[in-house]
């Protein structure tokens, strides 16, 4: 929302958006809540390693599998590591995976989509075919295949997650760009001698940013779930790295035997984060949705 929009088309959109945002947040407490939750997540991601009560990687076999207590708020796992500390420290990695994959797909899918909508013709056809092909795969299986083929690393999880979200971004960016292709401010820019690519980057892109932000917030949640799913089947990060998905997968074997806390807390954190991004996406959509704005 902070990206300056060109003022040729509308008067002071930034100020209007901010005002509207305040209105929406006060109008919709759920969105306010989501912003609060996001703040908690960001704090954990930035400060996590400095604020946790225990070393998240230090094993203590004497204290293995202890239920939540005053010392270990979320209990301990099989190796006696503090689950609370691990859950907090994992925030950085999980958010990192999500942010990177979303940034990557935004850069690739967003630009491809805008170009597709703006130029039309062969550009549109080729990009359309590529994203149709990706869409024809069961997406989670495609992600599995990519990670299995490229290797078991965080980078590859990021790439796989970006690839499966590619068609979504193309579709949104394309339809938004198409609408604005012949808009007054674009025509004006053309008349003043700007090149097509320049118009695309300086006029169209900033204009569709709000819609893309909504999309990014929604796919953040999906990206986290996707990484967790990959971890669950063993295609995840390397041990002993703390990551919510793999912690749930490890804890899953203990649920039946009564050690519910091992899977529950990372599972809840996962849910908390995805929930937060989904609500945030909804809230942002309300903010940028013109129908709601009137």
């Amino acid at each position: 929302m902070t990206i300056a929009s060109p003022s040729a088309a509308r008067p002071s959109p930034l100020l209007a958006t901010l005002k509207h945002a305040r209105y929406v947040i006060s109008d919709n407490p759920v969105t306010g809540l989501a912003f609060g939750m996001a703040l908690v997540l960001v704090v954990c991601a930035l400060l996590g390693p400095y604020i946790v009560p225990h070393d998240p990687y230090a094993s203590n076999t004497a204290m293995a599998l202890k239920p939540p207590s005053a010392t270990y708020w979320f209990g301990t796992d099989q190796l006696g590591r503090d689950i609370f500390s691990r859950v907090i420290v994992a925030t950085r990695l999980d958010l990192g995976i999500a942010v990177c994959s979303v940034a990557l797909v935004f850069a690739a899918g967003g630009i491809a989509g805008i170009a597709s909508g703006f130029f039309g013709g062969w550009t549109d056809r080729i990009i359309g075919r590529i994203s149709d092909t990706i869409m024809a795969f069961p997406l989670f299986v495609l992600a599995m295949g990519i990670v299995a083929a490229l290797g078991n690393t965080v980078t590859n999880i990021v790439i796989a997650t970006a690839i499966i979200n590619f068609p979504l971004y193309v579709r949104v960016a394309r339809s938004e760009a198409q609408v604005r292709r012949q808009a007054g401010f674009v025509q004006a820019a053309r008349l003043t001698g700007n090149s097509e690519w320049r118009i695309l980057l300086t006029q169209i892109l900033p204009n569709i940013m709000p819609i893309m932000m909504v999309q990014m917030s929604l796919t953040m949640g999906y990206a986290i779930l996707n990484a967790a799913g990959l971890s669950f089947i063993g295609l995840g990060v390397r041990p002993p790295t703390a990551e919510w998905g793999i912690m749930v997968a490890e804890g899953a074997t203990y649920i039946i035997s009564g050690e519910w806390w091992i899977a529950l807390f990372p599972g809840l954190s996962l849910m908390f984060a995805v929930f937060c991004f989904n609500l945030l996406g909804d809230g942002l959509r309300d903010i940028v949705d013109p129908q709601r704005r009137t």
Binding site: G221, L225, A228, G229, A263, L270, F272, L279
Partner: peptide
């Protein structure tokens, strides 16, 4: 939103 935020394997278990 809570429903879609739960990993399916976790819900299943």
């Amino acid at each position: 939103t809570a429903g879609v935020s739960l990993p399916v394997f976790f819900t299943g278990l």
